[in-house]
Design a protein around this nucleic acid. Sequence first.
DNA 1: CGTCCTATTGATGGGGTTCAAGGCGTGTGG
DNA 2: CCACACGCCTTGAACCCCATCAATAGGACG
Lengths: 264, 264
Amino acid sequence: MSDHNSPTSKLGTAAAVDVAYSPLSTRLSRYYRLNADDIATLEALPHKQLAFGAKTPIVSRGDVVDQLMLLISGWVVRCRYTRSGSRQIIHILLPGDIVTPDVFVLRRSDHEISTLSEANVRLISPRAVQDAFQKSARIAAAFWWAAALEDAVAREQILRLGRRSAIERVPHLFLELHRRLLLVHQATEENFLLPITQLDIADALGLSSVHVSRTLRKLVHEKLIHYDGTLIGIPSVEALASFCDFDTRYFHLDSTIDEAITWS
Amino acid sequence: MSDHNSPTSKLGTAAAVDVAYSPLSTRLSRYYRLNADDIATLEALPHKQLAFGAKTPIVSRGDVVDQLMLLISGWVVRCRYTRSGSRQIIHILLPGDIVTPDVFVLRRSDHEISTLSEANVRLISPRAVQDAFQKSARIAAAFWWAAALEDAVAREQILRLGRRSAIERVPHLFLELHRRLLLVHQATEENFLLPITQLDIADALGLSSVHVSRTLRKLVHEKLIHYDGTLIGIPSVEALASFCDFDTRYFHLDSTIDEAITWS
DNA sequence: CGTCCTATTGATGGGGTTCAAGGCGTGTGG
DNA sequence: CCACACGCCTTGAACCCCATCAATAGGACG
């Protein structure tokens, strides 16, 4: 947090640290302070870990999914295609996200899951996870919490696609990614690495890559963001948020699982 | 199921019948044959039932939600607004749907929930529902199943908004509603009642009401649908599905909870 | 050193918005 | 019972945001 002149190396370091403890723990701890036992249980779950190259499919539409997958590092997307072949990115998964949250109820995937950047994915048997749920209701709650948060992000995506212009969509997505990366210590207050292409951004935002390029140029020219191809800089998060009507409430940062868990 | 000349009254009758057993049971049974005990447990859960008029807010953004709500009859939407006031319908809830699926983990709603048509909503204490989960793992699985299906519909909504043209979006939504209404016996093979305005359709599809009107006229003129203001007729589901690239796979109609529940 | 992927910029066109006006049906109060 | 208001649908006209096509340039990589 000391040297603002080399954000890239700083981000790299942060990522390396988090791989030791899975970023899932990092993220869940942000909301609910899982105790040491919970975290130990989570981290000790028997698993394999797979490394994928960039732009590699992990799960295809119709595939049987029988492993719980956690994203350890890298960026992954859920996507769907129209008959004519154009791609829509449904959701961008970041380190700490659950890749296959519905493994407990759906046998086959209705969408494709593939990497954008290189990525590491941890595979755990659903059976083992459910055993962990038995051991600790907090762990179970944390998983449902994560699923509920993905739903909230999906709702924001729908609003963004349905009712925002291109010049709003692009920075709105950036602010969302920035906030989510902050939660897993993969961003500084002002910067984050964007390991994806403008075509990926276009497919996430329902735009053409040509128009994403133009929009980015415009945002840079207006000094609302910095962008050098891999690093996004946000000189003023407040100014940008105001510009694109970004509102963090959908992350539910002000509440914790404690409140909800009292039901059980 | 006998008289094809009066679809309206037939639909009305079907609705009346389903109110006796909650349409939740109807819908869940489609996927997993809950036994008589399960259905009895579900229906016997202590509850209040509320009747709402059309276009009435049920939950506002930021409200504390502490009741599980089930939609018994009528149409309800989740929606969000931009700063400038335009509305995006995130999700259309039909009879049998769970209005507040994240009551178990989130304390406040991040979106508004309001009726389109008149609607009846059943309120159940989350505590009572969790007791039912303890009693029957099948009931618990059925709830997570329902949540997973709402997610699948949300993914389809994202693809629809991001990558489909207006002339495809409108019939694509109609086919989705038709299929979902069929599951709760509120549609015939060819018809269903549409108790919402063209402005509602526009807000669901990210369009203007003017353009929805034009698009509907075009679809009627092409004889792909019939429409008299309240009743949608689909002369050929296959032809329309082909026209707008509609694919039912996202409903997971071919699998059942049986397969998934074997994990636990 | 060619090849492929990515980004950029220009030109053109179209799908959809916005503004505006008119008609229709329904409810409501004088 | 009628007049009026209001919500909803429809249609026209003008405009604009963004897609599409095309060409170029700059890496990265084998």
